[in-house]
Design a protein around this nucleic acid. Structure first.
Lengths: 232, 232
DNA sequence: CGCGCATTTGAATACTTTCAACTATTGTGG
DNA sequence: CCACAATAGTTGAAAGTATTCAAATGCGCG
């Protein structure tokens, strides 16, 4: 229980860069942690104490203004890494969107370990570069897209990232039905909109027959082409 | 001419991680390139052929929609690195905002060199993590701030990044007068606004006595406190 | 089964954009 | 060096889109 051997994301996480012996060392400095939906692990502005890998569940990275406006700046799925290695302060909070399990490391321990293992640092670099690309693409959405384009883009991206990547047969598979790990307010915080605007756009897409909404959290994509066209 | 020895940003760029001998090797695979304002070095969507360090000048990273809307997703100043190492495609274009000099490497050569030099990869990782932090902070601006808050934030950030970092005496120095490396349209593309809105906000700040605008490209910050308050 | 809270829907408002005209700056050729 | 053309920026008015405020609906949990 809780060892790297039995880890669900063992070969997808950055740990895949390590051999058996190194993994043992890493195992010694890490520990499992369970989080309930809504629970935070890292707070914006605080000292960067820990970093982690997601084993199961979905978490959000967010920042806010003093007067309470919030912006979700990243969403972390299983096998992904979060936290701020090699830095003193955390620039955004990290909160579980669903119940989650993560593999946590003291930042200092992790930093020291990573410095001695270039293969791990390389994996981390590749992931960070990829995350930066994804984040920059999201800036186009925030700065230049209309509400309807934002919603369509959001549904497509979420459908893609939510598919369990275990299935190698269809590497480009898209979920056609999904249970969103987000409330309406959280969707608004991802897209830079208000909850009312999100709701109206969902209703509109439903009336157009592009999606179906069996329950609050479930979405069925009926017409993917239409969504792609709408995404701009 | 054009060797690492005489490089203006020699000890600020990632190259600072290398010793004399390694630098010589790196020097052999890199070459200097001059760019005129408006000239592009990398195009969005194309194969990632090269990466580079900025020696002098300012460049923008940008993406756009098919119908011509543009969003600037990053601004690169002297000593900073750009391009997409360890990846096949460039996700955003890179264009000089001012005349510029850069130190270019073939991506393949750079990747190979970096793989063999963990200290260089480490520096690159630290920079990438820092850039990701900065980018995520910008998302709060794009998603949640009003036009006036955006303009104030933009002026403060630009004033900070524009100061030559040579001056060690005042590490937190802010420029009080600056020549913007951006046209009004480019400011609009950074902030997700239209050129008219940018212009109106500038005029408003001027009439309020918060800034002065001696010429199109020059800004004098008269009341920094007011700008900070306005930035939200 | 009913209560509480998330979500939806409606109407009025506010902000940014769009379209259009005007002004100023820069650069060019006579 | 000046005149003028081209480009960049400013300003105004009208329109459009998302927000705000308010009320209603309905899902999900006890």
């Amino acid at each position: 229980m809780g060892s790297c051997d039995s880890c669900l994301v063992r070969n997808r996480a950055i740990c895949a860069a390590l051999d058996a012996k190194e993994l043992e060392t890493l195992n010694a400095i890490g520990r499992r942690r369970e989080l309930h939906a809504g629970e935070s692990l890292i707070w914006e502005g605080e000292e960067s104490i820990l970093v982690a890998n997601v084993i199961e569940g979905v978490l959000k990275l967010s920042t806010g203004t003093q007067d309470g406006r919030e912006q979700i700046v990243g969403v972390v799925y299983p096998s992904e890494f979060f936290g701020r290695p090699f830095g003193t302060t955390s620039n955004h909070g990290v909160t579980a969107l669903t119940d989650a399990r993560v593999c946590v490391f003291s930042r200092r321990d992790f930093d020291a370990f990573a410095r001695g293992h270039p293969a791990l640092e390389h994996k981390l670099l590749e992931r960070t570069l990829g995350e930066l690309d994804r984040t920059r693409r999201w800036m186009l959405l925030l700065g230049r897209k209309s509400a309807s384009e934002k919603i369509a883009s959001f549904l497509l991206e979420t459908a893609d990232r939510l598919v369990e990547p275990g299935c190698k047969v269809h590497p480009d598979a898209h979920a056609t039905r999904m249970t969103l790990p987000f409330s309406r307010q959280q969707i608004a915080d991802v897209l830079g909109l208000t909850i009312e605007t999100v709701s109206r756009q969902f209703s509109h897409l439903k009336h157009e027959g592009v999606i179906d909404l069996p329950s609050r959290r479930d979405v069925v994509i009926l017409d993917r082409e239409a969504l792609v066209a709408e995404a701009g």
